[in-house]
């Protein structure tokens, strides 16, 4: 995309990243139903379809996808959803490194925002929807360090992070990866969502798409209403306090 370079000419962009745990346990599902990874693969098509239903939503929203296992990989570079064809798939491999995910996200956000800046776009702080079945296999201190880098107050592009837990993931485990965090006294804290025992993981994941799409719409509305004072809005009115 090209644009004139004048600061007054900046168009607006709202970036969203879908981040999916692709550890092997994500391919283990209910006997009769979908596996979690199959459910995760429905998120992008559902959200893209929802964005395309509105003529103007696609003008402002950018969507990217990252997966993580032993390492983290970019599944889909942040882009206008109308350029995404075909929609990539998440595929399971190995273990569960949160550290790798957080480090790659910081790197990708910086890279993506440099591109947006080059296109003379005014981007709002990104939102990350982080889907995991818990039990990270890397060292806790390493994860904490990577998370602190990603959410460093000096990092201007620090994202809003909303973790979604299924399987063995617990609220206590996931709440530490929320940003901004109520525990730190944030005035507009984000939150985590955890599917309780007995909740079908695949069904829970399909709810992520709903929260993501509702949030995309609410955030676009916030930008319309408040211009540069607007930004990411987490919208989850269709979801119970958790998935119980």
């Amino acid at each position: 995309m090209s644009g004139s370079s004048h600061g007054d000419d900046r168009l607006l962009v709202l970036p969203f990243y879908v981040v999916v745990d692709v550890s092997l346990s994500m391919s283990v599902g209910a006997d009769d139903g979908m596996t979690p990874i199959e459910a995760a693969n429905k998120i992008l098509p559902t959200v893209i379809d929802g964005i395309e239903k509105s003529p103007t939503l696609g003008d402002v929203v950018r969507l990217g996808a990252v997966d993580f296992s032993d390492d983290a990989r970019v599944v889909m570079r942040l882009d206008d959803v109308r350029n995404i064809d075909p929609i990539p798939q998440f595929a399971v491999r190995g273990a569960t490194s949160y550290e790798a995910a957080f480090r790659l996200l910081r790197q990708e956000i910086e890279k993506d925002y440099a591109t947006l800046r080059g296109d003379n776009l005014k981007a709002y702080r990104p939102a990350i929807f982080f889907i995991t079945d818990g039990e990270p296999t890397d060292d806790h201190d390493d994860i904490v360090r990577a998370f602190k880098d990603l959410t460093d107050p000096a990092f201007k592009l620090r994202p809003n992070i909303i973790p979604f837990g299924i399987g063995t993931a617990t609220k206590a485990q996931l709440d530490q990866w929320v940003h901004p965090n109520a525990a730190d006294g944030a005035k507009k804290p984000m939150r985590s969502y955890v599917a309780g025992d007995g909740v079908d993981a695949a069904k829970a994941i399909t709810k992520v798409a709903e929260v993501l799409l509702s949030s995309v719409i609410a955030s676009a509305q916030s930008v319309t209403d408040h211009g540069s004072g607007g930004g990411f809005v987490l919208k989850d009115e269709d979801l119970d306090s958790d998935w119980n």
């Binding site: 600061g7 900046r10 947006l116 800046r117 003379n120 709002y124 930008v223 607007g230 930004g231």
Partner: peptide
């Protein structure tokens, strides 16, 4: 918590 305006004031 407001949006971040990131475009540098570029040469006109």
């Amino acid at each position: 918590a407001a949006g971040v305006a990131l475009a540098e004031p570029a040469a006109d």
